[in-house]
Design a protein around this nucleic acid. Sequence first.
DNA 1: TGGCTTCCTTGATCCATGTCAAAGAATTGA
DNA 2: TCAATTCTTTGACATGGATCAAGGAAGCCA
Lengths: 248, 248
Amino acid sequence: MSTETLLSFEKDCSECPIRHRAVCARCETDELELLESMKFYRHFKAGSTVLWSGDEMPFVASVVAGIATLSQTMEDGRRQMVGLLLPSDFLGRPGRAIAPYDVTATTDLTICCFKKKPFEELIVSTPHISQRLLEMTLDELDAAREWMLLLGRKTAREKIASLIAIIARRDAALNRHDHRNAFTFDLPMTREAMADYLGLTLETVSRQVSALKKDGVIELSGKRHITIPDFDRLMDETGDDADGGPLV
Amino acid sequence: MSTETLLSFEKDCSECPIRHRAVCARCETDELELLESMKFYRHFKAGSTVLWSGDEMPFVASVVAGIATLSQTMEDGRRQMVGLLLPSDFLGRPGRAIAPYDVTATTDLTICCFKKKPFEELIVSTPHISQRLLEMTLDELDAAREWMLLLGRKTAREKIASLIAIIARRDAALNRHDHRNAFTFDLPMTREAMADYLGLTLETVSRQVSALKKDGVIELSGKRHITIPDFDRLMDETGDDADGGPLV
DNA sequence: TGGCTTCCTTGATCCATGTCAAAGAATTGA
DNA sequence: TCAATTCTTTGACATGGATCAAGGAAGCCA
């Protein structure tokens, strides 16, 4: 992202890349002006920690660019990712002072922050915001339930295929590919992060990625760059219904 | 639940057992009167299906009494429970016409229903309702994330101990036991439903319940009646942090 | 250029949980 | 009271994924 672009939306919400999908999506011009006066940006480098579970959480935020993850860690070190925050997703919960999960930037990350207290007042005074937040939270709950099916019942191979399909789908949505033809993208995460997402070990992730490659379901160049020659073939491997809904 | 009690709250919301926890919790007297004029009750017998995934969903509802589950089924029959609805929990999503999950009554069930269209108008016109719904949805999301850790990373023994702790905790909250001493309750579900909840087979559930019994973590009389001699001992078996938060 | 460091792959082996099978216990209905 | 049905337990065995171990590949900095 270029510096000018950054400066442009940092001044003016109407230039913001997530203007129409974030928690502010429904806001009118006057409401945006209010938000502009309150917001501030923070940047994190790939791999850095945004918050540790148990930390004081003085702000809520929207992801503007990059990817963040939410994860929980057990005493003995077992870790499970429980949320994946993409641009426009919301971080934090009104009414909660302490972060319940570790929040990590898996790529370079820019977030648009609001101090918690004033934002909580906004929720009450600005229905456009609380309505949008409800909608987004319901979407996240649906995603979490899809994920629970994956964690509880899918095989390692199905898990990998599902994750690749999710990422491919998102990429298709962003970059306007015709998803039914071959296309190409980069995995935005390490094998270890994939394992944490899927409830597997990184060795199993590596083996199953290799297996899908050997079977021609995906093509790999380097470690991260993937081509999908036949999206339907990939979908067959996910274990999901043929008609898994629209690719968004 | 006696017939008089039923009749009493069916007429008058202020008598309702879930008055202070459900989606209507924040409503004022005049708002309650509006709800009273719109609501209708439906009853389901234990084991019956409330909705199939893909069904038209003409209403949203609050669980008044009993337990319902949300579950997803894969084409080959693998099933994963993705939600557990207890009294006061909300069923349905404003703006959604089709049920995305199977909804099953695991005990006799009473729900308080609102037709979808009028309810959606309420959401917009009555902030007390949409604010409460947001809060409840955020709580559900937290629960789903806790569950994801269980599904992805816990052992079978830890999963069983966690489920028993969850049920015990809920029972403690309802029946005002002192949870630090021995107490007793019934599992409200079959071994198969436990397996669907935990991402296990029913045989593994049965074996691990037997193992916890042999090790003195729980006492069993019959198949469903459980006594926990030492709650801390049970918590040690769940894999969660010693301090897993308050027992609510 | 070369040597860290991080990330990834692959092999050998183990074991927790799934699968298949049989039978016991509780519940229901005739 | 006796089937019939549903729920549960237990055993024997199979297997998918974890664990342990080694080394390869790519990126980074001196």
